[in-house]
């Protein structure tokens, strides 16, 4: 049975593949402009009268094009300088202040605790043991400062990664013709943030191994 659908004359697949290869060679990175050019190449290859279905498809492509243009304009209008120049530095300064204040408080607690330890050493009997047990608990609790400091450092690193990604999006959509694309990964690598892939700092309790898990893992080597 003959195919009732009589679509427009289409460009041979080999020629389309050739055009795409040429475009890929010219644009090794997947850029919005390259995508637009591919769409234009496909649309301009169409010949003859369009069916209703094809007209609808073209209309959708045009709408997609307008949406992309609008998104480009909105991204280009982003005040990225505010983000990189003041918003993120403000946030990181605030976090640094938290670390500094809690560190000072922890030092004060430790100093007081050491005084109590000294008093305990001059005592005898149950009172001395009770006092030393209390100071031990305080020392243990004070290690929170180290953990929170490391967690805050992770947050600062995340903020800097967000900053780099925002800059990448703006650069990709609003960059001058011919300017190189800088991916967030390249920016992070240039900033040395991809080093020490092993080091992740404290894990959230749900994802962390506790001491007994680590003991079991170590024992598995014996």
């Amino acid at each position: 049975m003959a195919d009732p659908y009589q679509g427009p004359a289409v460009i041979p697949q080999a020629i389309l593949a050739e055009r795409l290869a040429a475009i890929r060679q010219r644009y090794p990175e997947a850029e919005p402009e390259a995508v637009a050019e591919i769409v234009r190449a496909v649309v301009s290859s169409m010949r003859g009268d369009l069916s209703a279905q094809e007209t609808s498809l073209l209309s959708e492509i045009e709408e997609l094009g307008r949406t992309i243009a609008s998104a480009k304009a909105e991204i280009a209008a982003l005040r990225v300088d505010d983000i990189t120049g003041s918003d993120i530095p403000f946030a990181t300064d605030e976090l640094d202040a938290i670390v500094a204040h809690t560190a000072a408080a922890t030092e004060a607690i430790l100093e007081t605790c050491e005084t109590l330890d000294q008093v305990a050493s001059d005592l005898n009997g149950p009172a001395a043991a009770q006092l030393q047990d209390a100071t031990t608990r305080i020392y243990e609790a004070c290690s929170f400062q180290d953990i929170t400091g490391q967690r805050i450092t992770k947050v600062v690193t995340t903020l800097k990664a967000i900053e780099a990604k925002v800059a990448h999006i703006v650069a990709a959509f609003g960059r001058p013709e011919g300017a190189p694309i800088v991916t967030p990964e390249r920016e992070l690598a240039a900033a040395g943030l991809d080093e020490a892939a092993l080091l992740n700092g404290p894990q959230l309790p749900a994802a962390a191994m506790d001491q007994s898990d680590i003991d079991r893992l170590l024992a598995s080597f014996d």
Partner: peptide
């Protein structure tokens, strides 16, 4: 250390 992932423990071991 605060590094509590299994791969850290294995590497250290």
């Amino acid at each position: 250390t605060a590094e509590s992932k299994a791969e850290n423990v294995v590497v250290a071991k």
